[in-house]
Amino acid sequence: MFTPNEPDILSRYLLKVKIGTRESQLYVSGIRGGGFELTAFEAQLFQHMLLSPIFCAAYDTILSIVDPQNQVRKRLYLMLSILETSPDHANLFLGVHGRWACIRIACVGASKYIFYLLLGSLLYGLQLSKYRLCH
């Protein structure tokens, strides 16, 4: 399963950046290369996740706890690695400097993490019951 806006949404969630054709093409060829197939439940989660970067954050947060090896996360890992090896986004991976910048990022990141954890638990629970009803 592959949706054309997938690389765009995933990168907006991961780094809040807009990607070019290079990154999109690499992502597509990575997925086509195999090893990223989703189960029925994973596909259902993924479809919902692609509705918005906020859902991406929520599902990723809860999956990192309940099922870190989920194939949905493997797709996120693929996108993250492509972004890291892209000259346009390299700066974002070369470290943050300045104490205050570090403290600010950590505090904001942690509070968002808690929010997404709560949202993710709710959404994941709903998706799980929906899946169980249908199957």
Binding site: D60, T61, R73, L92, G95, G109
Partner: peptide, 17 residues
Amino acid sequence: LPFSFRFSYQLSAIVKE
């Protein structure tokens, strides 16, 4: 790291050096 990719990315960028 045992967190979401976004949060793990932010933490790693801070601690990289």
